[in-house]
């Protein structure tokens, strides 16, 4: 593959977990809750799915266990936030702290290892439409030859669009964020929709995390490495719309793919490479807020 194709190809691989997590976060964001806990939900999902894959050798069961555990944590965040009236930002941070603690503690308990746990016996994730990658320029690496997680992320994004914009449930969910009292006035509970949104976010984040660890065939401490935060930024940059999420996450994917490529060429220290997503996100957020500020001034 030439440079451009391989850049696009790795951009899609990088953007998949971001897109998944951001799609899940879109639900909570639309109900007016800032879900800081995406990072922790992803981390817990990554850990529990790869560990259960190691013990069961069944990918469907592994993802079920992974999503189940993340949804449980999401339910904890949501119930404390909504029913004990806690600050959603702080409960989210707590979830992140809890996830990083519990994964390390359990990894030490099960494998007697706090560092990288590799599972060499796990099979490689099958790649779909492999022959298309090189056959079609630009669109080939964009669409073909990825693992099923990538296709799942596209399907789930489309489904989310349908659910959010074409069903009564989605309408009510979005109304919760815009004006919660409107739900009360028709006899519905906004808290219930916020709770469901958190569960959905837990599910999506867990799938995103599962992709990271299962593709790697290993669990690395803090494997999510800020991806949950980037997913939040993707939501803001994507202007809280499904198509926007797709574009924003691709921008992140291509920028990270490029910085990985640059590292190989110019021998930039790895710490700088790790810092690039944060700096890039910062610049994107600042530009977005300038744009938003000027737009509001015009209105």
């Amino acid at each position: 593959m030439d440079t451009v194709s391989s850049l696009i190809f790795s951009a899609v691989t990088i953007m998949t977990p971001l897109l998944l997590a951001a799609t899940g976060g879109l639900y909570t964001e639309l109900t007016g809750m800032l879900n800081i806990g995406i990072e922790g939900l992803m981390l817990l999902g990554a850990f529990s799915s790869v560990v259960s894959l190691h013990f069961t050798h069944n990918i469907v069961l592994a993802i079920l266990i992974g999503t189940g555990s993340s949804m449980l944590l999401a339910a904890v965040i949501a119930s404390i936030t909504l029913y004990l009236k806690a600050n959603v930002f702080i409960t989210g941070l707590a979830a992140n702290l809890f996830a990083s603690g519990i994964t390390t503690v359990l990894s030490f308990h099960i494998f007697a290892n706090k560092g990288v746990v590799t599972f060499p016996e796990l099979p490689q994730m099958p790649v779909l439409f492999e022959r298309g990658t090189e056959a079609v320029p630009v669109l080939g690496p964009l669409l073909f030859g990825h693992t099923f997680f990538t296709y799942l992320s596209f399907i789930l994004l489309f489904l989310s669009y349908v659910v959010l914009y074409r069903t009564p449930f989605g309408f009510r969910l979005r109304a919760t964020g815009l004006y919660p009292k409107s739900l009360i006035s028709v006899g519905l509970s906004p808290k219930r929709y916020q709770f469901i949104a958190f569960l959905i976010s837990g599910f999506f984040s867990a799938v995103a995390g599962a992709m990271l660890s299962v593709n790697l065939g290993a669990f690395v401490p803090n494997i999510t490495a800020g991806k949950g935060w980037v997913a939040l930024v993707v939501i803001f940059l994507g202007q809280k719309r499904p198509v926007g999420l797709l574009i924003a996450s691709f921008i992140f994917g291509i920028s990270e793919a490029f910085s990985n490529y640059a590292q190989g060429i110019w021998h930039i220290p790895s710490d700088f490479i790790l810092a690039i997503p944060y700096i890039f996100t910062l610049v994107a957020i600042v530009f977005y807020s300038i744009y938003d500020y000027n737009r509001q001034k015009v209105e």
């Binding site: 806690a86 603690g101 503690v105």
Partner: peptide
Amino acid sequence: VTFELSSIVQATVFFLVSSVTL
């Protein structure tokens, strides 16, 4: 046990500390 046990305790505090009800 490992040291990270403390972060589970701290997370529990974090979870509940901002709760107005509590």
